[in-house]
């Protein structure tokens, strides 16, 4: 089992694997810092890869693979506005879609974190009950920046 092999084995993602954070737009890439000791296994723009097959779905943005000593883990990343309560419902819909879709792929077997990065100013701080509710469903709000560390 490897991230690259399992991406290739996933319907519609086969040709979408990029090196490092290459699947992310330059703007979104700037929101992520990668520690010096971190080795990435590649990234996929999930939204772009599935847009044609699922045009009306609340698609998730990206998955990034990270190599660890004896396994790999995945960061499921959505860059999305956090400017109002409407965004909470949107993120919840995306999270539901991700949970259902992920189960149909070999990528479900990896350790993971699921992260929302705010694409602009945030109307929420980490004490907001809606963010706590999303955490209870597996989603972490990272504010405007995500640091990938060992």
């Amino acid at each position: 089992m490897s991230f690259s092999a399992d991406v290739k084995a996933t319907l519609h993602l086969g040709g979408a694997l990029c090196k490092g954070l290459g699947a992310l737009s330059a703007t979104d890439r700037a929101r992520i810092s990668v520690g010096a000791s971190i080795k990435l296994a590649g990234s996929v723009n999930v939204d772009a890869a599935l847009k044609t097959s699922q045009p009306n779905a609340a698609l998730w943005d990206y998955v990034v693979g990270q190599k660890q000593s004896n396994k790999e883990c995945l960061h499921w990343i959505e860059v999305h506005p956090a400017s109002g309560t409407g965004n909470i419902g949107e993120m919840d819909a995306k999270l539901k879609w991700l949970a259902v879709w992920m189960r149909t792929t070999p990528l479900a077997s990896y350790p993971r974190q699921i992260v929302w990065i705010a694409s602009g100013k945030s109307a929420f701080n980490s004490r907001h009950p809606a963010l706590r509710s999303l955490a209870n469903r597996g989603l972490r709000f990272a504010g405007g920046h995500l640091a990938l560390a060992a």
């Binding site: 189960r103 974190q113 955490a135 972490r140 504010g143």
Partner: peptide, 19 residues
């Protein structure tokens, strides 16, 4: 509080209930 959210989200995302 941010770390608490992170910890809870991580545990839940890797739980059988999520899967």
């Amino acid at each position: 509080s941010a770390r608490a959210n992170e910890t809870v989200a991580k545990v839940v995302a890797n739980s059988p209930e999520f899967a």
